[in-house]
Design a protein around this nucleic acid. Structure first.
Lengths: 121, 121
DNA sequence: CATATACTGAACCATATGGTTCAGTATTTA
DNA sequence: TAAATACTGAACCATATGGTTCAGTATATG
């Protein structure tokens, strides 16, 4: 089940690694849109946009529904919670890590000062 | 400068989209490590690991220093702040969007009930 | 000095990605 | 019913990705 999580993070981070797809998500945050509208907005062929939407759909970030000849895209069920959690955990670790380093530096500085004192004698 | 931001999000999300690289980041969160150690941990050739480290270095998530024949890797200067910010902004949007939908549904429900009342007459 | 260690770079490979065109199908609309 | 619209799928293309092997170089170590 770690494997499962891992795979999902892979696909969602990959989905987010493209500027067009992030743009689509932002746009859908404002209003639902058809493939045609999205394709025009991002200066791309319908087929190209369809692929991006496919990727977003795969990762659960977008859902689509075809009514008549129009496929309408809207934000999907995933709220990127696991991704946010991963990033936050990482940042916590990062802070801890650098606090540690700070302490080491501090320690060294302290020793240096004490050496200075010794040298002054 | 939006372009600049965009490119950076591209590369950092791409860096995070690989399980091995996320693993390396977690490991480096615990302790600095050489390429050899990382390669062993993730069952990969030195060359393969070197590439992953290269990607992480490109994205500013890792820095390395070669002392003698050993290259030591440690967490880099970037704290993934922009990435976290993007995700959080997205989630806010997502919440707003679904609140809106909720209101629409509520509105419909209200109308339905009022119709029921009318029909009962 | 000889050998082992740690990395590096080039070359290769299979597959994925981000895009296109072209030739459809299905649905409006005039 | 004819023409326009909206999408879809296959095929193609260039480049990127994640890995390998192999042949080095540079640095310890015995």
């Amino acid at each position: 089940m770690v494997q499962y999580m891992t795979t999902r993070l892979d696909t969602s981070f990959a989905a987010l690694s493209d500027a067009t797809r992030r743009g689509v998500l932002e746009q859908l945050g404002r209003a639902d849109a058809s493939i045609t509208v999205l394709a025009e907005t991002f200066h791309m062929t319908l087929t190209g946009m369809k692929k991006h939407v496919g990727v977003l759909e795969q990762s659960g970030l977008v859902t689509t529904k075809k009514i008549g000849r129009v496929r309408t895209c809207q934000l999907g069920p995933r709220r990127l919670e696991d991704e946010t959690a991963w990033l936050e955990r990482y940042r916590r670790r990062w802070d801890e890590r650098f606090d540690e380093l700070d302490k080491v530096v501090e320690e060294l500085t302290r020793k240096e000062k004490s050496n200075e004192r010794k040298n002054r004698k």
